[in-house]
Write a protein that binds this DNA or RNA. Structure first.
Ligand SMILES: [Mn+2]
Ligand SMILES: [Mn+2]
Ligand SMILES: [Mn+2]
Ligand SMILES: [Mn+2]
Lengths: 229, 229
DNA sequence: AAATATTTTTAGACTTGCCTAAAAATATAT
DNA sequence: ATATATTTTTAGGCAAGTCTAAAAATATTT
């Protein structure tokens, strides 16, 4: 353990990453989270996961039963959500203040999210004007750990004639984000669905009441919109 | 080693701290740096230092001869200065943008300085307006590693009738910084030396052409000023 | 120059976190 | 119900970084 006298011990870089990964898996699936899924999520081996969940279990961050998978405790969930909060605040800082593109912020935020200082996060939050969403449209949990759930739907769910405001993405890969940026499909744009091809499912949309564009089904299934009226 | 796929490997948290500490010792003393001094500086044991300098030596970051102390190589010095640059930029950010007091920024910057992203530092620098000095008056090294040396002198070196602008501190402890802040002795204030007591060396100064104050010799020996004409 | 004191290095061990290979448990197919 | 496949855990080990205690080298006294 690299000694770090500069802040009172909270949770290590690695512990926070495990908790965050387990939290995200738990959000998606409801079932108990199994070893292999965790290993895949943080790109490590199942054996390493077993080692680590034993330790996290001893620290009361999750409940673990051999061969039965894990489940975060209340405490573990709190730490995970706090890590997500820090991640998304830093992404917002990088995008809004330092002018990083939305596909560039994630990797740097993966590092910044582990800086230990409650006061830093509070002041950053204030500096950013208490943002509710990060550059990808994901909600930023509050200090209290409450996540304001948004009622966005997939662009693919809109019918012809309906419209919505781009409010988030499902796929967070840099490749997809760059593609969207290149096509002016960024947060806040208004999309009106004009046609859905019966043959190849291409969706023709009008952007901000101006130019029209064809979107692949791969694209429309990965854009979240706030449906208008 | 916590695996970190998110940035190409540069130098670890610990390596950067060793290099920075050795660099600062080298600045102060000229002689080769001995094991005990390093141990004291980073608050570890001499045995740990010996282990580490062997490794840093293998990585060509410093020259090490048993029982003779160490000396940074050109590369090691570059890494050290870059770490100082990051530290001071982050301190400036914390103070100027997040409104941390000047005695609160150091500990958090000790963490932030190890974030690995050249682009982040460049953009932060730009966001801050390419500051030349940190909140304590210490010069911020440039991208190229050049440190603009300033010609500040100790307040204790001013004669009666001379004046100067507070431009830095020697002692960086939170206690001292808080003391200065409480007495309005912050960067930018103009001080005119009016009297130096022959008995107890107390120095009477006038602050910004207004109120007068007595300063202990401990205080005047730890304030750096830019002498006025 | 010899004796003593100090500094530095070695030796051996610990923790965190990771790995591979093999064993054990669980799940699936016949 | 058995056999096979998959998942999970154990066993043993490695690297970074730390520690204490003892040995070796250097510095200081006498
Ligand atoms: Mn992200
Ligand atoms: Mn995000
Ligand atoms: Mn500092
Ligand atoms: Mn400083």
């Amino acid at each position: 353990m690299p000694k770090n006298i500069y802040f009172c011990y909270m949770y290590s870089f690695t512990e926070e990453n495990y908790l965050k990964a387990i939290y995200k898996l738990q959000e998606q699936s409801d079932l108990a989270i199994n070893t292999n899924a965790i290993a895949a999520a943080i790109q490590t081996k199942a054996a390493s996961v077993t080692d680590m969940v034993k330790k996290l279990s001893e620290k009361k961050l999750l409940n673990y039963e051999k061969y039965k998978g894990v489940e975060l405790t209340h405490l573990g969930k709190k730490v995970a959500i706090d890590t997500v909060r820090k991640h998304r605040l830093w992404e917002t800082f990088l995008h809004n203040k330092l002018n990083f593109a939305w596909d560039e912020v994630h990797d740097i935020a993966e590092q910044l999210e582990h800086i230990q200082s409650q006061e830093l996060i509070d002041k950053l939050d204030e500096f950013l004007g208490f943002p509710s969403h990060d550059p990808h449209g994901d909600p930023i949990p509050g200090r209290n750990g409450v996540i304001q759930q948004n009622n966005f739907i997939l662009l693919s769910e809109l019918e012809i004639g309906e419209s919505g405001i781009i409010s988030g993405v499902v796929n967070h890969s840099a490749l997809f984000l760059q593609h969207l940026e290149k096509n002016e499909l960024v947060l806040g744009k208004k999309l009106l669905v004009q046609e859905i091809s019966a043959f190849d499912q291409l969706v023709k949309v009008q952007i901000d009441d101006k130019k029209q564009q064809q979107l692949s089904s791969e694209v429309v299934r990965n854009i979240l919109v706030k449906k208008l009226s």
